[in-house]
Amino acid sequence: MTEPRDDRSTSTSTAVTTSVARRITPGREQDFVAWTDAGISVLRTFDGFLGGGWLRSSTDPYEYYVLYRFDSDAHLQEWLSSPFRRAWVARGVGVADDHVTHRLTGVEGWFEPQSTLTDAVRVVGAPPPRWKQAIVIWSAFFPLSLLLNTLVSEYLSLGLVLRTLLVTLVSTPLMVYVLLPFITARVKRWLTP
């Protein structure tokens, strides 16, 4: 089994989701499932592990995606450098070959396609640069924040804490479910040319 090519380094303390595209040796699908499930069982014993599993590609019967999530890059690095992982990888020789690893941290998931599960875990390419993500988030957040603060300040006489609580309770779901999907769909070519 070859070591995966890591197309994105992470050096942040936020949660890290890793997806690994694996090409299964024909006839070894059951071995792959058992081997992957054993690896996830080992992962469960590591500090900061938040969950994991595997998915089949919808277009290629020999391509699978293995997903796992840690609460921080430091905990992920403990797993990646552990003797337990090395032993587990060694047992997978001949079962599958890793061909790319992709990691997402922070709000990058907002910039991934949401149409299907396989699109959401696509491992080709990288998320847009953080500066582009920041511009898109700001372009949604600023007008919404201005509007809500104006409405709340104009019509409700609340203290700073209550006003901020109300604005964030309204703006967060609007940002996540309405504005960011709307804006990212409009600037998709600019985000990922």
Rank of each mutant, 00 (worst) to 15 (best):
R186I: 15
S9T: 10
R69I: 01
S41M: 13
L55N: 04
Q30R: 12
F182T: 07
W138A: 12
R5C: 08
H75S: 02
L156A: 03
Y65A: 14
R189Y: 03
P61I: 01
E108G: 03
K188C: 07
S9H: 10
G39A: 05
R5Q: 12
S57Y: 11
D98A: 15
V178I: 01
F32H: 04
T116D: 08
D97A: 13
V170F: 08
S19F: 15
V167C: 00
Y155M: 07
V176I: 05
P129F: 04
S81Y: 08
V136S: 01
I135D: 04
V66N: 07
L43C: 12
R28P: 04
Y68A: 02
P4F: 11
A90Q: 13
D97Q: 07
T184I: 09
H99D: 14
P181W: 11
Y177L: 11
F142M: 09
S19P: 11
S153N: 10
W190K: 06
A185T: 10
R186V: 15
G53A: 03
L165K: 13
G48M: 00
E112D: 05
F182A: 08
L80I: 04
T12N: 00
T164Y: 07
D119V: 10
S115Q: 10
E112H: 11
G53I: 05
H75D: 07
T18Q: 03
Y177K: 12
Q30A: 13
G51N: 02
R103N: 00
G106I: 06
P4G: 14
P26K: 08
T172A: 09
L174I: 11
V16H: 06
D71Y: 13
L146I: 12
V95C: 08
V123Y: 12
Q30P: 04
P83R: 14
V123W: 09
T168I: 06
S58Q: 15
S72I: 06
S153W: 08
D119M: 13
G51P: 06
L165M: 12
G92P: 11
L151K: 04
G106C: 05
Y68W: 08
L174C: 04
S171G: 00
Q30W: 09
G125C: 14
V107K: 05
T118M: 05
N149M: 06
L166N: 00
V20L: 10
S81I: 01
V66Q: 12
T17L: 03
S157L: 11
G125T: 10
G109F: 08
V176F: 06
V170W: 13
R5V: 14
D47P: 02
P83W: 08
R69T: 05
Q114G: 07
W79T: 02
L156M: 05
T116H: 14
D7P: 12
R22L: 15
A96S: 07
F141Y: 08
V33I: 09
S153E: 06
A90N: 11
W54E: 03
L67V: 14
S115E: 06
F182C: 06
G52Y: 13
